[in-house]
């Protein structure tokens, strides 16, 4: 991207109040904005700056801040620039606006995030189950869902001790780290903190 273009983009985006722009490199721009300003930013980028492709929406669970971070990845085919727009929304009650009216593919990403994180998007066309059709538990990608505990309660472990392993053990070898020692709670790193 030319320098002129990045300046243009800078000027254009200053129309949004409270926006913080960081150029990681000339083709990678990070924009941090308030959650309320996001639809305006997307409409602006799509309508006036050729960013027609919403390639993904990703979600991060910042459980200590009690917030979800949503990242909208926008791509321009004409300038080959990727803009990621970052917003934070409170974890409770976990409701945000759908951007389906600006970018149609958002419906899929929002449905996926709703399933994995339980974040509800108001105005999204379909918030029903998507991939985890067999799943009735809490949204599994939330940090407070303990997947390992759930597994321990639901499944049982099968002893696997074949002859070749027994032979190795007789020669002084064998398994270096047992399943128990690598359980999340038993890892040395986590015990320290």
């Amino acid at each position: 991207m030319s320098i002129a273009h990045s300046q243009n983009l800078n000027v254009l985006l200053q129309e949004i109040e409270g926006i913080q722009l960081t150029f990681h490199n000339p083709r990678r721009l990070r924009a941090d904005i308030a959650a309320e300003a996001l639809p305006a930013l997307l409409a602006l980028l799509r309508g006036r700056a050729s960013y027609v492709h919403l390639s993904a929406i990703s979600c991060v669970d910042w459980i200590d801040d009690n917030q979800f971070e949503l990242v909208y990845h926008l791509w321009s085919y004409e300038t080959s620039v990727l803009i990621s727009a970052h917003i934070r929304v409170p974890r409770d009650p976990g409701i945000y606006l759908s951007v389906f009216d600006i970018y149609t593919p958002a419906a899929f990403f929002e449905r996926d995030i709703h399933e994995m994180f339980g974040l509800y998007f108001e105005g999204s066309p379909d918030m029903s189950k998507f991939i985890l059709t067999e799943w009735n538990g809490p949204p599994p990608m939330r940090k407070d869902f303990d997947s390992e505990k759930w597994v321990m309660e639901t499944f049982s472990w099968q002893q696997y001790h074949p002859d070749w392993l027994q032979e190795l053990e007789q020669q002084g070898g064998g398994i270096v780290s047992t399943p128990e020692s690598i359980r999340a709670g038993n890892r040395p790193m986590e015990n320290k903190s």
């Binding site: 599994p140 390992e148 759930w150 597994v151 499944f155 049982s156 099968q158």
Partner: peptide, 19 residues
């Protein structure tokens, strides 16, 4: 298929096939 392998901690995979 024996024990979930490296997916033991996964909420989405079945572990012991012969169950």
């Amino acid at each position: 298929t024996v024990n979930g392998g490296m997916y033991w901690q996964s909420y989405a995979t079945a572990k012991k096939l012969d169950e």
